[in-house]
Design a protein around this nucleic acid. Structure first.
Lengths: 235, 235
DNA sequence: AGATATCTTGAGGGGTGCCTCAAGTTCGGG
DNA sequence: CCCGAACTTGAGGCACCCCTCAAGATATCT
């Protein structure tokens, strides 16, 4: 029973060229793997990261068994596909925010553009508002984005524009709101989220600040909450 | 084929004492109906209005067939049960808001207390953020609540405290946000929503107002959006 | 070409939940 | 006490979706 470990792709778990070289897929298997990742990209973009795996297999022209052979779990597939799908756009948003001369402007633009991505791309929406703990690449990517967010927040606060009691852990609150708003209004008023973001931003300026009733979340609480956000069950 | 119409309860669809008197349930059937509504109250409160009907039947000690005989649809059951479950508390919230001497205070308290109910009671959360178009009683109740909301908003605006470009149709945006926030943080930081509400409220004061990027929703759009909010599917 | 390890298939078993209907049970008036 | 109408039952069909595994197909090495 050779444990191939459902990797197949980028086995670079440690230093390269080590003992356990990649077992080298058979050529047909390699083709299928490519068809699968391509299909996954399409389906995830259209339907979000909860899309039925059966649809991905079908669109790749392959049976679900093959999908499970290649990637053993949904999250492995996500990890193989989604970072490439979202990394560039997320980085670009953070970069544009940093490039903004006015720190408040940079912050506001960051929040707005991220929400815009959420509204446009279901996969990205899931990336921003949920967490897939088995998806290491994606996890790393997210933690990088969290850093960007923190810097953008801190810069706006140093400039005295963003209220001082705001914390980077408050950012997710905003994106969670956008998530549900986008879902609710996508087919009826696809820009409605802009209005909500506008209202919130006005509450984030230093001049607007009134004391807040409770402490911010800890990063760990944010993480836990994001895990819960994917659950299907009412309770 | 006698069309009894899945009513059984309060047939008062039109003027009473008319032709189609209530067919009068058999005594055992009446008992079952009572057990069912009692069970539905419990289950809806614990799990929200999407709770499996099978669980309600089971908790009533009755088969699902009986449940479907009495109420033909989930919404009929909701309509029979939920108004009594929420009306008093919703009215009380609105009344307290009106009773507040300071209009801004009244508005802020209204938003806060409604969110509090959302956080506490899954059934109420669904009532506030979704719409069940077949549930006439409940629909009527909601439209009454909308009126209350509108009055509270307008009073705060007349007092110059609430920004003038806020509309009653913006209220649902807030409650949708609370909905997702409560779901995400219930087990991790059950008061987190208070922080989000605090931030939003600070954006709603007249002094905080900056121009908003898009028009408010129409009441019809709000209605449509609330219909969508219950959907299971990613898309 | 033959042999063998690798890969694919797709039916099938899980689980959740909705809804129905033929057959059996119970009520309650006569 | 009897019988028909009213009521209940619960297995079974449906729809999703997950994941597995024995059997068959295919690539690659010699």
């Amino acid at each position: 029973m050779r444990q191939v470990g459902h990797l197949g792709v980028l086995v670079s778990t440690g230093k390269a060229g080590d003992a356990a070289q990649k077992p080298a897929l058979r050529r047909d298997a390699q083709r299928n793997l490519e068809k699968l990742t391509a299909a996954a990209v399409d389906v995830f973009r259209e339907r979000g990261l909860d899309a039925p795996l059966e649809e991905i297999a079908q669109r790749a022209g392959v049976s679900t068994g093959t999908l499970y052979n290649r990637f053993g779990t949904r999250e492995a597939l996500i990890d193989a596909v989604v970072p490439g799908l979202v990394a560039a756009r997320l980085d670009a948003v953070a970069a544009r925010a940093h490039a903004c001369a006015d720190p408040w402007q940079g912050f506001a633009q960051y929040v707005t553009e991220l929400s815009e991505l959420q509204a446009t791309d279901p996969a990205l929406n899931d990336v921003v508002s949920r967490r897939f703990p088995e998806a290491e690449q994606l996890l790393a990517l997210c933690s990088g984005q969290v850093d960007h967010g923190r810097q953008i927040v801190e810069r706006a606060q140093r400039a005295g524009a963003l209220r001082a009691d705001f914390t980077p852990e408050d950012l997710p609150l905003i994106f969670w709101s956008t998530q549900v708003l986008v879902r609710a209004t996508a087919e009826v008023a696809p820009d409605a989220w802009r209005r909500a973001i506008g209202l919130v931003l006005d509450g984030l300026r230093t001049e607007a600040a009134h004391p807040l009733p409770v402490e911010p979340l800890t990063p760990e609480q944010v993480h836990q909450a994001m895990l819960h956000l994917g659950e299907r069950k009412p309770r």
